[in-house]
Amino acid sequence: MPPVFPAAEYDRRLAALRATLKAQELDAVIVHTPENVCYLSGHATPGYYTYQCLIVTADGEAALLTRETETVNAAETTNFERITGYPDSSDPILATAELLAEVAPGARAVGMEARSWFLPPEPFLRLTALLDTAGARITHIDGVLAAARLVKSPLEIEQIRAAARATNAGMTAAAEAAVPGASERTVAAAAFGGLIAAGSEYFGMEPFVASGPRAGTIHASWTDRVVRANEPVLLEMSATVGRYNAPLMHTVWTGPLSGEPAAMATACAAARDAALAHVVPGGSPAAAHAACKAAIADAGLAHTYRKRSGYSVGIAFAPDWGEGHLLSLGENEQRLFEPGMVVHVVPTLRVRDSAGIGLSATVLITESGHEVLTSCDTGPLR
């Protein structure tokens, strides 16, 4: 697969990172998180479960280190000239230190991620020890990389729009399949087919399908359970295009709801709309979360809500389709919304072993407000 974007887009990103390195007096940075590697280079492969890293120097060098068999993928997905492969029999941590010495000889200040899922404690400690022995001090640069990815460029937004179209198609297919007598497995198959036929590549996380009382459990995916009449079916999924994501949670029900599930459905729609009112330039993610919670509490259903109210979305590899570690709609979020950010607003009300209702939207923050990208016209009331 060729690079998703023209070379100029990656050059712009690398130039911004190099400017930051110079401002912080760093000679180079070593990046391990697959989403950050992809953002800066275009490199994307399901083989990220093996060790890989990207080295960017302040003076203009950039190099990818991957498993030797993955170098073909790297050559196809990037515009890089320097791609180094390590054999399966070698030590990739030692190879990283050696490659850094080649592209940034005598480096005395090196940036590294401290919170990457893909550099566990043991290799992290070995790599920092090797750099320390070589005379380099380590600076953690997670925040710098996060800030760069939060506001999307016009080209990134094009990819997210394409992902949203595929998500909407997959959700519609699943919602139409969620009828009494159908199994959750059948509904999930419809979701997969709709997502992939509409343009999705491999997902950041699998679709979720949970009917009736199973919807009361978070992250419940499909089983052989058969959908019954007069019960909700909770659906959540995200297509992935160019590694960019646009999730949607939606609930359909197969007849009249009554009692607590009916109240949850009304409250969930109100909570989503209350949160969305704050998702505008200069708006506060914490205020959006508070408004979401208040709408649920006003309905007497605060006991059904135990989570954040949304998160940033963009580039993602499994095990997640979101960027909640970059920005979340929660009490402690300090950063304000800006044009070009994309967030998934996702209130979900659940009662264990009883029911679950979720109604969400992925939205693009514009200069004057927001634009809803993901939605489903099928349901929720059938």
Rank of each mutant, 00 (worst) to 15 (best):
A129P: 05
A129L: 10
A129M: 06
L130S: 04
L131K: 01
D132S: 14
T133M: 04
T133P: 00
A134R: 10
G135E: 05
A136T: 08
R137K: 14
R137P: 09
R137Q: 15
I138R: 08
I138M: 13
T139S: 11
H140D: 03
H140S: 03
H140A: 01
I141Q: 02
D142V: 00
D142H: 02
V144S: 09
V144D: 03
A146R: 06
A147E: 14
A147H: 11
L150N: 02
V151S: 08
K152Y: 05
K152H: 14
S153C: 13
S153N: 12
P154R: 09
L155E: 09
E156H: 10
E158V: 14
E158H: 10
Q159S: 06
I160K: 02
R161K: 15
R161M: 11
R161Q: 14
R161L: 10
A163I: 15
A163R: 01
A163V: 14
A163Q: 11
A164H: 05
R165N: 11
A166H: 01
A166M: 05
N168A: 15
G170T: 09
M171E: 01
A174L: 07
A174N: 06
A175C: 14
E176C: 11
E176T: 13
E176Y: 04
V179H: 04
P180D: 04
P180Q: 04
G181P: 14
A182T: 15
S183E: 08
E184G: 03
T186F: 05
V187P: 00
V187Y: 01
A188W: 02
A188C: 10
A188V: 05
A188N: 06
A190V: 15
A190D: 13
A191L: 04
A191W: 01
F192G: 07
F192Y: 15
G193I: 03
G194V: 04
L195S: 10
I196L: 08
A197M: 12
A197K: 14
A198V: 12
A198G: 15
G199K: 07
S200L: 08
S200Q: 06
E201N: 12
Y202D: 12
Y202F: 15
Y202E: 08
F203P: 02
G204H: 10
G204R: 07
G204N: 11
G204K: 09
G204Q: 10
M205R: 09
E206A: 15
F208C: 09
V209D: 00
V209W: 01
A210M: 06
A210F: 01
A210E: 01
A210C: 07
